[in-house]
């Protein structure tokens, strides 16, 4: 539990935990970028003043405890089904602000159909897509987004595209559709990129408030534990290697 710290005399608080977050500590591994992304979503909810009308969809995977971290209503979804569950909620109560928070296994493997079709319908929801190229929670298996050559527990000699396929660029796929309003790929490996990612998340929520339709922010994340890297090394790997395969930037923006 965090303790309310009295503001020291002569100082002003300029950064603290967003209101949308509860006091529960994150269950992510040390240095995992999930924590940054989770906080950015909370900050966006705060800044838009929508906490009391927001419903989040927690996925299966490392963010399965998401409902504990947030102070808004939450629904826990089956692996891959978040976009379908979000559709059900949003269609039942269009006044709610509905967001999903999904990993790459969830969104781009087992939930590919639900993702593609929610996007294609232009479903007025916000999707936060955390791409760390691996199944973190289950022990570091190959994900659809694993880089060629990358070692995982199910590609011990490295991902061999002829055997295991290529990294799935689902955001590029979605950007080809007529339905989505906004598809972007961001990263959070340093301060400037975090600032940009935050702007993208804000936009993805604002689009929903404006009724613009399906908005997805893919965020390249890390998995220091399963990548067997220090948090700092993992961040550098995203900056240098992952962005080569998954370039950053907006893929679709109807404005």
């Amino acid at each position: 539990m965090s303790v309310e710290v009295a503001v020291p005399k002569g100082y002003t608080r300029v950064f603290s935990k967003p209101r949308a977050l509860s006091d529960a500590g994150f269950t992510y591994c040390p240095g995992c970028h999930h924590g940054i992304i989770t906080r950015l979503v909370a900050e966006a909810i705060d800044e838009l003043g929508i906490l009391e009308r927001t419903v989040g969809i927690a996925p299966v995977g490392c963010a399965v405890f998401l409902d504990r971290f947030f102070n808004c209503d939450f629904v826990q979804a089956a692996h891959g089904r978040a976009c379908a569950v979000a559709t059900g909620i949003k269609r039942a109560r269009p006044d709610l602000v509905v967001f999903t928070y999904q990993g790459d296994g969830d969104l781009a493997a087992i939930g590919t159909a639900e993702t593609v079709h929610a996007a294609n319908r232009g479903e007025n929801i916000t999707v936060i897509f955390v791409n760390n190229g691996i199944y973190g929670m289950t022990g570091g298996e190959m994900a659809p987004t694993t880089l060629p050559g990358q070692r995982t527990t199910t590609t011990p000699a490295g991902r061999e595209p002829r055997l295991h396929g290529y990294p799935l660029k689902i955001s590029e796929m979605l950007a080809q559709l007529d339905g989505p309003a906004y598809i972007t790929r961001q990263a959070v490996f340093d301060h400037p990129h975090i600032v940009k990612a935050k702007r993208a998340i804000l936009k993805a929520f604002r689009n929903q408030l404006d009724g613009k339709g399906f908005s997805l922010v893919e965020i390249l994340s890390t998995c220091p534990t399963n990548w067997r890297m220090s948090p700092a090394e993992a961040g550098r790997w995203v900056a240098e290697e992952v962005t080569e395969v998954f370039p950053l930037g907006d893929l679709k923006d109807v404005g």
Partner: peptide
Amino acid sequence: VAAINMVYGAAAA
């Protein structure tokens, strides 16, 4: 699969 999960969402709502 999607249809029943939409039911799940709407029922939750």
